[in-house]
């Protein structure tokens, strides 16, 4: 079973995304901010995919991506960034920081699964 790591400061967002992913047969782990996410990654969590929000207190999504890419086990891990329609420049910045792609909020269930399938071979 593939593990997907969700990082978002909004519990509503975490709930809605994990519901979709769990139904689709993924194991879901969550963190509510970038610092916690990094701690979990350093503590041995090895997700097949990470999805992080951009606007969070503390580390932003882009900063989290940059830090994550510095950790050797995650140099090749697909990472998606959650953005809003208006944050188009942030997407480019996220790509440059090492994001694989992005999702636009609100994320429809089928779009989420389509993108997950797109970046995760064998799903």
């Amino acid at each position: 079973m593939k593990t997907i790591f969700l990082v978002d400061d909004s519990t509503t967002m975490l709930m809605s995304l994990s519901e979709v992913l769990k139904k689709a047969g993924f194991q879901v782990e969550t963190a509510s901010n970038g610092t916690d996410a990094l701690a979990q990654l350093k503590g041995g969590l090895k997700p097949d995919l990470m999805i992080t929000d951009q606007n969070m207190p503390g580390l932003t999504g882009i900063e989290l991506i940059r830090e994550t890419r510095k950790l050797p086990p995650f140099r090749f891990t697909p990472i998606l960034m959650l953005t809003t329609e208006s944050q188009q420049a942030k997407r480019q910045e996220g790509k440059a920081a090492g994001a694989t792609g992005w999702l636009v909020k609100p994320v429809a269930g089928k779009d989420l699964l389509a993108v997950v399938k797109q970046v995760l071979p064998g799903t």
Partner: peptide, 16 residues
């Protein structure tokens, strides 16, 4: 910034 983030979160989730 804190206020902005809070409002941003509501907007993001409201789309669901």
């Amino acid at each position: 910034n804190e206020i902005f983030r809070a409002v941003h979160t509501i907007k993001g989730s409201s789309g669901l």
